[in-house]
């Protein structure tokens, strides 16, 4: 009985189930139609990577802009940071995506602007804004972890606020900020799957479309999961490399 439980998952995936037939042929690269399907599925990779990369870069920039007022001594500046972080963090990604894609063009129109939002930029804007609340908190924690004496020493040798950040605080904080920031990138890659619902031709959308024509959800979605797995594993390797380098730097 125990043995049976152990091999059950394999039986499930290899098609030894009695109730239904299995069809790995649908993504079998050795057949012409299978290869066409696989190429179709993988062709979403470029869009997923593009959306994720641009969103991550924007999120890293917006996050810093949001984090800085949160470190101010003035309460009103800190409030700006708090309101942004709490508000953005509270919005689930899918409703925000709908709001940006269907709602924002109407807001623009009412202001007399004709700015269309296509699925590509709709997804990027949503992912970047949504993620920036988290990157802002990462920056804030990282900058706050640098001892106050560093800022004071910078002030006493005449550096202004921007110079203090640029030459003293951020170069030290970046070691603590980069690894969690890179982790955040993994979230963006996974969340980019939501772009499929507004018609962006990325990995998940391609899978959905193929399922509709081939009726092979298990096989196709299994491949989809492995596509994301490969992307995330590559990023993880990058993060670990980064952490090692930072660690080595700190000791040296």
């Amino acid at each position: 009985m125990k043995k049976l439980l152990l091999i059950a998952p394999f039986l499930l995936l290899t098609g030894c189930s009695s109730s239904q037939t299995w069809g790995w042929y649908v993504i079998d690269p050795t057949t012409a139609s299978g290869w066409t399907n696989v190429k179709f599925l993988i062709s979403g990779m470029g869009a997923t990577i593009q959306i994720s990369l641009i969103a991550a870069v924007l999120s890293i920039a917006i996050g810093l802009l949001v984090a800085l007022p949160g470190l101010s001594e003035k309460r009103s500046w800190r409030l700006v940071n708090r309101v942004y972080v709490e508000f953005i963090r509270a919005i689930p990604l899918l409703p925000m995506l709908f709001w940006v894609f269907y709602g924002l063009p109407i807001v623009f129109q009412s202001m007399g602007l004709n700015i269309p939002i296509d699925p590509f930029w709709g997804a990027i804007i949503t992912l970047a804004i949504s993620d920036s609340a988290f990157t802002a908190e990462i920056y804030r924690a990282g900058i706050q972890s640098i001892a106050r004496g560093q800022r004071e020493a910078a002030q006493t040798i005449g550096l202004n606020y921007i110079q203090t950040m640029r030459y003293v605080i951020l170069p030290q904080a970046i070691r603590r900020i980069l690894p969690p920031l890179a982790n955040q990138f993994i979230y963006i890659v996974k969340m980019s799957a939501f772009a499929s619902v507004i018609g962006m031709q990325e990995l998940t959308r391609r899978a959905n479309e193929l399922v509709v024509t081939e009726y092979r959800p298990l096989e196709i979605y299994t491949l989809l999961i492995f596509e994301y797995l490969i992307l995330v594993l590559i990023i993880s390797a990058g993060v670990r490399w980064l952490e090692r380098r930072m660690g080595a730097d700190e000791r040296g």
């Binding site: 001892a147 004496g149 004071e152 020493a153 040798i157 005449g158 550096l159 030459y167």
Partner: peptide, 24 residues
């Protein structure tokens, strides 16, 4: 300062030249 507050990511020379170059 009591705790020196030198900039650990810079060399001694860079610690000394940062203010004169950037502020002066």
């Amino acid at each position: 300062f009591q705790q020196f507050n030198l900039f650990p990511h810079l060399t001694v020379l860079e610690n000394l030249t940062l203010g004169p170059i950037k502020a002066r």
